[in-house]
Structure formats: C-alpha cells, structure tokens
Design a binder for these strands. Sequence first.
DNA 1: TTGTATGCAAAAGGTTTGCAATGAT
DNA 2: ATCATTGCAAACCTTTTGCATACAA
Lengths: 155, 155
Amino acid sequence: MERDLIALCKNKASELEAACRKNGLALTIQRRVILECLASRTDHPTADQVYEDVCVKIKGVSRTTVYRVLETFVSIGLAKKISNPESKARFDADTTRHHHLTCTACGVVLDVFDNDLNNLRLPSGIERDFEITDYSITFTGTCSACSGHRTKDHG
Amino acid sequence: MERDLIALCKNKASELEAACRKNGLALTIQRRVILECLASRTDHPTADQVYEDVCVKIKGVSRTTVYRVLETFVSIGLAKKISNPESKARFDADTTRHHHLTCTACGVVLDVFDNDLNNLRLPSGIERDFEITDYSITFTGTCSACSGHRTKDHG
DNA sequence: TTGTATGCAAAAGGTTTGCAATGAT
DNA sequence: ATCATTGCAAACCTTTTGCATACAA
C-alpha cells in the first residue's frame, strides 16, 4: 500500500508539461521545482514548507511565487488542498483517491490507502441534490509518537 | 435526517452548564451567548462569523474572547473544528459523528447523516500505529444551486 | 475575596495584491 | 516581440499573546 515516490515524481514532471501545454501556461523553472518539491514529500506540506524546500534547490524564489504556483497546480488538477482542521493550507501532489489520519496532538497527516474505503456505497438520495465528484475520509486521533505523552503538548 | 435545531440549542445550554461545572470553568455570559450562536447555525461558521452573530446579541464582546472561547469549547468537547481546505477554522456544535458535502464552486458545507457511513469497517492494521477516535467524510462536488452555471463563479 | 475570564492593543502567522522587471514562447 | 510570470513590498486576514480590569464562584 506504499506509494512509489520516484515513479510519482517522474509522472508529475510529465504531467506538468502536459498540463502547461493544455492550459497555455509557461513551463517555468519555478513551476518545475515547486512541483518536484511537493511531489517528493508525502507529509502534506504547507505552502511555507514547500517554500523552504524550494529555497534549497534554487536561489531567489519568492514566497509569493510558491503560494501562487501551488494555487495554479490545484486549479489545473496537479495537486489538491487537503482538508485539515488547522488554519493553513496543506497540499498533496497525489490527486488519486485516498484518505488521511490526522494526529490531534502534533498535527501530522498520514495517508491511508484502502480499496474498501475507496468504494463506499454513497447514501441514496444525496446525488439528487449534489453532484459528488470525489470524497476523502479524515480519521482523527493520536499517532504512536504522541500516544506516549498523555499531556496536551505539541512536541 | 434533519436535525432538530431547537432541541440541539437547549441541549447545548445544559451541556455547557455541566461541562463548566465539571471542568471548573466559569459560566460567563460570553460563553453562554457564543455557544448559543454557534449551536443555532448548521453552516459551520468561522470564528469571525460567530463573532458577528455574538455582536448582535451582546455589546462589547471582543473578537479575542470569541476565538478563545471557541477553542475552550473544542477542548471540553462542546464543539468541533471541522476539517476543510480553507485557511481558516470552521466550527460545529454538533459533535456527533456525521459527514460533509462541500461545494467546490460556492464553498457551502452541508451535513450528511447516514448510519452506514457512521459504521465503516476500519482498515485492519491501522489501529496498531494510530489510535483512532473519530472520522469524518468530506464529499466534494457541486451543489444544486451551482450545478446550473457551469462556469467557475463564486456567486 | 480569589482567581479565572475578558477586553484591549499589539504582534504573530499565513495569504494576497499591485506593480515593475524578467523570462518563456 | 509579446504577454504571462516572477519578485518585491506592502496590505490583508486570521489567530495569538501580554497585561490590566472585571466578574463568577
């Protein structure tokens, strides 16, 4: 159930080319590196976390660009914003259906890949009023690292 | 599958008394009104939206208090922060298990109550590494109001 | 009376915008 | 050459913090 990160990154690189061509967008170095940085992590980074990674790879990129490019990726389907209870956006380069475990203590977000969960029977009647395109389950609880310390710390 | 809003509000009022007593918290007017305002909406308001409502009911409440009290409610189990892809917290006074439909066009969040969805078989093995306390499904798509206009407007 | 909760002001994140300069096509 | 994209600076929005005052118990 693990995902092949190297394959994902390669796929993403060619997806980017295709998506830029299709949408009439320029294939800039910034877009290439930002997508590369996003696709190489599975921990659903915030825009600022992506920015940190990008800075290591190329000099002089601005935070603004990272924020803007990530939004562009979402709008052309190269990435998703994931639902989370924090007050900041988190991004995921894996746009296929999967689910999340979020630790209420430390905030970590782990992936859940499961066939049964990916094929739920939707409640009847709903689709009359709402056109459902996708869904994602967020499991909340405590990760193993935080299970030890019972106090409400954020280490 | 509708929820009885009046009953919910009354329940919440007595829940508040009980929770304050239990946790050694003062039963202030602010806490009473803030919970009242939150419980009387089913649209998962942001802290600022709750603040707006509170201002109508009592004068001179500060935004800070609303933010602080909502966090208090979450910590004593009177409310939940709901997972969403926006960069701001949204709150829900209904702490029982239920799910959400979010319209990607207009952003509205509707509730889904369904017995089957509330009793999913969790993937085996997960609970070894992660202590799951709850879960919630976010369905994404287009609401009936937005289904008409195919353009990506936000009206 | 005692200690918690509130209000204020200010700061701290996180994100967006306007505009000139840069760079991909 | 042209127009989209970037970088910068500043604004904006949401949330948090420190401290003195007010209020519930």
